[in-house]
Simulated assay, not measured.
Amino acid sequence: MKQGENIVVGISIGDLNGIGGEIVLKTFEDSRMLDFCTPVIFASIKAMSFFKTHFNSGINFHSIQDLNNIVHNKVNVFNCWNEPAKIEFGVEDPKMGEFAIKSLEAGTKALKDSQVDVLVTAPINKHNIQSDTFNFPGHTDYLAKELDGDSLMFMITDDLRVGLLTDHVPVKDVAEHITPQLIEQKVNTVYDSLKRDFKIQKPKIAVLGINPHTGDNGVIGREDDEVLRPALHKIKEQGKLVFGPYAADSFFGSNNYKNFDAIIASYHDQGLIPFKTLSFGQGVNFTAGLSKVRTSPDHGTAYEIAGKGIADENSFKEATFSAIQIFKNRVGFEALTKNPLKKAARNGRR
């Protein structure tokens, strides 16, 4: 991003047979979005024109073959392929998986090369993207390989942030994946992200137990006492405000989550079920811990409603807002850390 220009938001289009095209159109039909960001959709002008016609959208796309030709105050479409895409809403099609990967790879390359400032990813189908050259469970794992850092799935809203110790891991394998090293890595990633990405100076983090009732002193499993508690104790000795493990079954219902800046769940459903219950339609999936900013909506391809014009774009819009704000926070954080005199002056005013 050059001085005085909008933040450039790269958008991977996801599965063309899902709701990705619709929620992208609905988000940028609001022309006010172009006042503070410049979208670049990685797809094809033919596919986007199909969506425009199908959903009767008034958007005028700016088609480009070269990212040096991005125009601000326009909805740019970078052509990742020229062949026609046979879009059949609601159908799982391996060809749509190929297009989704082309979009993701082009968007990621642009992000790595700083030709876009952030990346917002529309939903993919984790099954039809698999191939000999692409063998990742989803966006997060692919981006962890392509971008520097320790990736972490961080589900966020204005007043709730949930990270995961393990994400796309079968439940039967969760306990063996949770090691002292993993716990320390994930807690540190959340802690650093809260400071760098969310401007929280002294983060308070809660960690949920692995077993029901955190093992009930070993009656329902020993992992909480033998792995989780010692690891959290070690992290506390480093001066970090980390608390737990807490029994997951009552943690959210009691509103205890409101006492913390972030919660770290032991496994996927333990964290995402309460998160989506409390915030569905407004939540954002942020990949914390990477050198670049990537967000996505908190839902999937929604084949069952694809093409019907009834998809809710709010989560995608929130993902766009969040990416922009996190990017700005990072710029401010890095400027502050590079200028210790400015930091000292700010601390002196407290």
Rank of each mutant, 00 (worst) to 15 (best):
G4E: 06
G4M: 05
E5H: 14
V8E: 07
G21Y: 01
I23Q: 07
V24C: 04
F28N: 01
A43P: 01
S44E: 01
I45N: 03
M48N: 00
S49C: 10
K52L: 05
I59E: 11
F61N: 03
H62M: 10
S63F: 00
D66F: 03
V71T: 08
V77C: 01
E92N: 15
D93V: 11
E98N: 08
A106S: 13
S114P: 00
T121P: 01
P123N: 01
H127M: 13
T133L: 10
D141C: 02
D141K: 01
L143Y: 10
E146N: 14
L147A: 04
L147Y: 04
S151H: 15
I156D: 02
D158W: 11
P180L: 06
Q181S: 12
L182T: 06
I183S: 05
Q185D: 15
D192E: 15
K195F: 11
D197F: 13
I200C: 12
K202L: 12
K204N: 11
R222Y: 15
R222S: 15
R222H: 15
E223I: 00
E226N: 13
P230V: 06
A231P: 04
E237S: 15
G239M: 12
G239F: 11
K240S: 06
V242W: 08
G244M: 06
A248M: 05
F251S: 00
Y257D: 03
S279D: 05
G281K: 10
T287E: 02
V293P: 04
A302P: 07
Y303Q: 09
I310R: 06
E313R: 03
K317L: 06
T320G: 00
F327T: 12
F327H: 14
T337C: 13
P340W: 00
